[in-house]
Each structure stands twice: as C-alpha cells, then as structure tokens.
Write a protein that binds this DNA or RNA. Structure first.
Lengths: 236, 236
DNA sequence: CATCCCTAAGATGGATCCATTCTTGCTACG
DNA sequence: CGTAGCAAGAATGGATCCATCTTAGGGATG
C-alpha cells in the first residue's frame, strides 16, 4: 500500500494527489478541522491548483472533507453520534463479511489471521516506543486481520463499502484511542481470537455475532474519544 | 452571538452540475457505456469545462462513471456479478434498516408504507401507459417504501450508504426489468406486504429476513437483465 | 472604549489557454 | 487486397487569468 511501481495502466495524477492528501489526513499530519488551502497544497505537491481542486472534490464525495462554497475545504470533524452510526453500519458489514468468509476461507488466509493476532498480542504485551505520527504495530496487525477477512468474503463490493466507511475517520485517532488504554488493547486481542476461533470452527453464525459486537465496541471507544475531545475544545 | 444566519446553504454549482449529470444517467437519457464529453456537457449546461471536470470527479468516486486518463469518461457498464455483489451488500443494509425501523417506526410512517404498497398494487393491476423515459408509478412507490424504512431506522449513515449503492446503477434499468415481467411485479407487491406485516407485528427478526430475501431477489432479476444485455451485445 | 463601516488583501471558482495524447482516416507498401 | 504507418483533427489535462466572495484590519463615530 506504500509503493506504486505500477507499470500497468498509468494512474491519473488527480487520483495520486487525492491519495496523498488523504494519507496526510489519515496520519494526522493534517488535523481534523484544519483548513485545506488550495494554493498551499499546490505548492507542496508541485502542481497547479487545477488537479488539487479535482482531488478535493473526490475527498468531498467520499465524506472525508467538507467544502463550503467560497470558503474552502476543511477536514470534517466527526460528531460522536456520527461515529456510532457509522460503526453500527460497519459492524453489520463486517459481520456479514465474516459469515461469508467462514465458507470460503483458505488455510493460507487462516494462517495470516493467526499471524496478525500473534503480532497484536506481542505488541500489546510489549508496546514498542514509537515516533510521533508512526503507526503502531497493533493497528497495522488489526488492519491485516480485518482486510484478510474482507478478502476471504469474496465480495469486493463489500470490502469497498467497508473501506469507504473507514476512510471517513482519520486513522491516527484510532492509534490515540488504543495508545492510552491497555485494557482496550487486551480486549481487542481477546475478541480477535474469539472471532478467529469461530471461523476455524466453521461457525458462521457465531463468528458473525462476535464480529458485530467487536466492531460496535470499537466504535463506542472511538465515539467516546470524540466526545472527550469536543468537551475539551469547548472548555479550554 | 450565535448567528448561523444562513438563509440558504447555497449549494455549490459543481454539486448542482453533478446532480444533473447523474439524473441524466439515472433516467437513461445518457445510456450505460456512453461517452461523456466535457465540451458537450459544458455547452448543454451553459458553463465552462472546469466545473464539469470537477463534477465528473465526483461521479467517478461514487462509482457511477469510469474515467480513463486522457481518454475521458464513460458511464460504467455493470457486470452481472458486480450487481449480485452490490445487492448482497444492499440486502444486508436494508435488512438491518428494517430491523432498526421496527423499534422506532411511527404510525405516520406505517401509513406511508401502506399507501406506497397500495399505489404499487394498483399500478401493478392496472399498468398505466407511459411516455418513454417516464418513471413508472410502481418504481416511485417502491422508492417511497424503501426510503421510508431508511428514515425510520434513524441511522442517517445507513441511509446514505444504501443510497450510494443504489446510485451505482441507472434507475431506468430497474424500470425495464419490471416493465416486461408481470410476475415479478406481483411478487414485488407480495414481498412488500409481507415485510410491512412483519413490521406492524413488531417482529424485527422476521422483517429483517423478509427484507434481505426481497432485496437479493431484486438483485438477481437485475443481474439477469445485465446478463441478457451483454449476451445481446456480444452476439449482435 | 466599544461598535460599525469601509477598504484591502487573500482565497475560491469559473473561464480560457496551450501542451500532450488519443483517435481516425488516408496513404503507401508488402 | 490487407496492413502498417503517418498525419490531421479532436479531446483531455495542467496551468494561468480574472471576477467575486470572504475576511481581517484600521479608522471614524457615537
């Protein structure tokens, strides 16, 4: 996901620009609520404002930024109830993906899931020191776990839809949520293991239930983080 | 000092343009597979190419059109398996919406559902003559039925996600699917009535199941239409 | 001293310009 | 007669221009 040495069909410049801006928002390099000035982005990315404007339109329709006419674009600041809503939806989709995956998953994919959980457990027990802005290994392993299930579901549209929801919320917030909450991290690992257990057992119904619960729980944690944040902002 | 004295949120011109182009595709005025030439659209809509280009980027990310670098945009031609995938996802979401709706639906909304079904039944028994490109009353009533349930679910993100999926496929195709299949129309009415029955009975689980089945079935019909179409194209 | 207004700077948004690429049709050659 | 190649036309895509809207700052006034 980091290298694009694609000899294949020449990706459009605009899509590349959009990806870069999205990455900056996802990593927290551009904070939520921050203004996105076209001229500034154009300078930094070494292009004119035209492709920037088209890229911003893409990010607008994907819901990551908000564009107010004649006043420019800002990174959307999620409201807690929006987070809960989105994760309710995501939970259903992930649950469905898990149920589908149970019927089609390969041994290799199961091995990948085991490995991801192992990495997560390891990083949870011995949390490594991180540079600011660096992605924690738990988050990476978490992504591998979920993405593998999406793939195993065999439904590309399902994977895409889940992805669209995830890309509405900056990823670095999820890092922060996990960083200060050892108990949440441990719970995460346990839930992943229970899900994997159900998958291996071939119990689609149970796997689905566990996954739904897992995602809703994660959404609740995320929503609470945004609640605390807005409280802070209003007070201080 | 809390003045959000916004009388009109003044929608951006680009969004308006995008809506118009989307509407033309949805109604079939612009056929699937057709080229979208920027200069032509600019002329017809009375603007320059700049807002057209931004609007096309929006439609691109929403998946309705495909933009090939240096070769322009075409209306995406859905492949049958894509339709099945999308409707599998939509079915889960609509099912979930129905389950949520059972707990929150108001009497007024139930009345709306009844009315929509009545309209559908009426139009199914006595199919009116239509101008080409005119939306059949069954389709309109069908939309009212589903949209009302989305609203009643109380989850805006859920409604939006379902909408995003629907807007991937031109609506006029759904008209064609229904137009020549009296049996399908009748089945549609029956299924709607069974769903409404379960909702009124307060049986969320059953309502969900009925809705999932209903949507999957609709997807199957749609997918088969695209199958027949591609066969025709390849032969003729 | 606070408030209102007015002006100037900055940013967005539509229009236009031009280089590059793709397409198409004609021609020449096998 | 078919195919490869080339040249002209057309369309896209990035850059630039300019009008309009927004906002910040300063000065006048009550």
């Amino acid at each position: 996901m980091s290298n694009d040495t694609e000899p294949a069909p020449r990706s459009a410049l605009v899509d590349e620009i959009a990806s870069q801006i999205r990455a900056r928002i996802m990593s927290g390099e551009i904070a939520i609520g921050a203004q996105l000035r076209q001229a500034e982005l154009a300078n930094e990315l070494g292009v004119s404002r035209t492709p920037i404007r088209e890229a911003l339109r893409q990010l607008q329709t994907s819901g990551l930024i908000e564009v107010v006419p004649n006043r420019g674009a800002v990174v959307r600041v999620p409201v807690p109830w929006e987070v809960r809503e989105a994760y309710q939806v995501r939970a259903q989709l992930e649950g469905f993906a898990t149920e589908l995956a149970v019927k089609r998953i390969s041994d290799a994919e199961i091995a990948t899931l085991r490995e991801a959980n192992e990495t997560m457990r390891e990083a949870t027990v011995h949390p490594p020191a991180l540079q600011p802005g660096e992605e924690p290994p738990t988050t990476t392993a978490n992504d591998v776990f979920h993405t593998t299930i999406h793939q195993a579901s065999g439904n590309q549209r399902l994977a895409r839809t889940i992805n669209e929801i995830n890309e509405t919320f900056p990823r670095n917030v999820s890092w922060l949520v996990l960083r200060d909450d050892q108990r949440h991290r441990e719970q995460n690992v346990r839930e992943h293991e229970r899900i994997l257990e159900a998958i291996v057992a071939g119990d689609g119904e149970r796997a689905r239930r566990e996954m739904v619960e897992h995602v809703v729980g994660a959404g609740e944690h995320l929503a609470r983080w945004y609640e605390r944040r807005s409280a802070t902002v209003f007070v201080g």
